[in-house]
């Protein structure tokens, strides 16, 4: 049986390994398991980027019908990722700094870093530059939910703050405390 790639209804090209039964089982052999985990992480991050999904939860493996069904389940071979396996995949991602627990101090839901905070910072800065909002004070809401869709639309607040922190450190943004919240002013300076 030759394993083949498969394109999902959402237009995502699933890798051929996704059609292997063993791919859905945690392997005791560390070498084999490492290969599988690497491919799982790439698959999850690719799909997240494809669908602009920022969060994955253990519930996604427990309950069908979520955003992740196309990846976590393979109806063609009658296989799915069981929750305990997803938990271990999530923790593997966290340990490789490809995700972080959000909210913290729990292990059932993570924010996926298919772009690292540094990359998001660049995206934020270039978006501000492109939209002429340098030196303008922006609220968080204006960034995450702009009237014109942007690459930053729907970004989780915690991830946005990390990106702003990166910009602040390099002098390209300033975090401003206002009465009913906080704002950010993008600065033209920097590298």
């Amino acid at each position: 049986m030759q394993l083949t790639t498969h394109t999902t209804p959402s237009g995502f090209l699933l890798p051929s390994i996704h059609a292997a039964h063993a791919f859905f089982t945690e392997q005791p052999n560390p070498i084999t398991q490492n290969t599988f985990v690497n491919n799982w992480i790439q698959l999850i991050l690719s799909y997240a980027r494809h669908r602009r999904l920022f969060v994955i939860r253990v519930e996604d493996a427990e309950v069908a019908g979520g955003d992740w069904d196309e990846v976590l389940r393979n109806e063609r071979i009658n296989r799915r990722v069981i929750p305990s396996y997803l938990t271990s995949l999530i923790s593997a991602m966290v340990s490789r700094d490809l995700a972080y627990y959000e909210p913290p101090k729990q292990t059932r839901s993570v924010v996926l870093l298919w772009r690292l905070p540094e990359e998001w910072a660049d995206v934020l800065h270039s978006w501000g530059t492109a939209t002429g909002q340098i030196n303008t004070i922006l609220t968080m809401y204006e960034i995450t939910d702009p009237p014109v869709p942007s690459p930053l639309s729907g970004i989780p607040l915690s991830l946005l703050r990390r990106a702003i922190t990166v910009l602040t450190r390099s002098g390209r943004a300033q975090l401003i405390e206002v009465a009913d919240g906080e704002g950010v002013r993008l600065l033209a300076g920097g590298k």
Partner: peptide, 15 residues
């Protein structure tokens, strides 16, 4: 099954 994935190269979606 045989472990044919040791030399597996990603053939899924790329960006």
């Amino acid at each position: 099954s045989l472990n044919t994935f040791a030399e597996y190269v990603w053939d899924g979606q790329t960006f």
